[in-house]
Amino acid sequence: MSDAVMTAWIAAGSAVAGALAGGGVTGCFTLAAARRQAQSTVDAAARQADAAWEAGRRQADAAWEAGRLQAEAQLDVARQTLAGQRLAAQREVRRAAYATFLAAADASYQCRLEWQQALGTAQATGCRDRYRVSLTAVAEALTLVRLEGPDAVSTAAQTLEGSLEASVSPGRYQDAHAEFLGTARTALAAP
C-alpha cells in the first residue's frame, strides 16, 4: 500500500471517527436538551395541576361556606317564623281566656244588679240563685286567666272578681273592669 492510500484510509477513519464522535457528543447534547425540555414541560404541567387543584379547593371551600351561611339563614328565618307563630297562638289563647272572663264577669254583674233590683219581690230568690251561679262561672274563667297570665293581668282579674261581691259598691266594678281591660290590652300588645 502506498503512502497515499494509507493516508486516505487514516483520513477516512478519522473522518468516520470524528463524525461518530461528533454525532455522539451532539446526540448527548441533544438528548440532554430533550430531557431538560421534557422535565420543564412536566414541571409546568405539575404546577398548572397544583394551581388548578388549589383553585378547585378554594372554590369548594367557598361553596361550602356559602351553603352553610344559607342554611343558617334559613334556620334563623324558620326559628323566627315559629317564634312568631307561637307568640300569635299564645296571644290568641290569652285573648280567648280574657274574653271568656270578661263575659262571665259582665254576666255576673248584670245578675247582681237584677238581684238587687228584685229585692223584696217574688223574683229575688231566683235572681239571687242566678247571681251565685254566675259567680261560679267567673271563678272558673279566672282560673284560665291565672293559667295564661301574666301576673299583672291575673291580679287585675282578681280585683274585678272581688268587685262582684254583693257587699262591694256597684261603682267599684266599673273601675276594676277598666283596669282589667287596660292591663289585658298591654299584655296582648307586648312582644
Rank of each mutant, 00 (worst) to 15 (best):
T121G: 03
C111I: 01
L82D: 06
Q85A: 13
T136N: 11
R68T: 11
A137N: 10
L144D: 09
R94L: 04
Q116E: 14
V153S: 05
Q80P: 00
C111L: 03
W53T: 08
R95S: 15
A78P: 01
G56D: 13
D151N: 02
R57D: 11
Q80N: 09
W64D: 11
L119Y: 09
T155K: 12
A103L: 14
L142T: 02
A60K: 06
R112E: 01
F101R: 02
Q74L: 15
W64S: 13
W64V: 10
D76W: 03
L75Q: 14
A62K: 12
R79D: 08
A96Q: 11
Q59K: 14
A66L: 13
L135A: 03
R95W: 11
A89V: 01
E114P: 01
A73N: 12
R112P: 02
A141W: 07
G84M: 06
R57H: 13
A55S: 14
G56F: 12
R128L: 13
V153I: 07
T143N: 08
E114T: 06
A96T: 09
A124E: 09
Q70C: 05
A63N: 10
Q123C: 01
E148N: 12
Q90S: 10
R86E: 11
E114I: 01
Q85T: 05
E54C: 06
A139I: 02
A89K: 08
V138D: 03
E114N: 12
R146A: 05
E148D: 03
A71G: 11
Q90I: 00
Q117A: 11
L69Y: 07
F101I: 06
G84V: 00
G149I: 04
Q116V: 09
C111R: 08
A122N: 05
A71M: 11
L135Q: 14
R146H: 08
Q59F: 07
A107E: 10
Q59T: 14
A107Q: 09
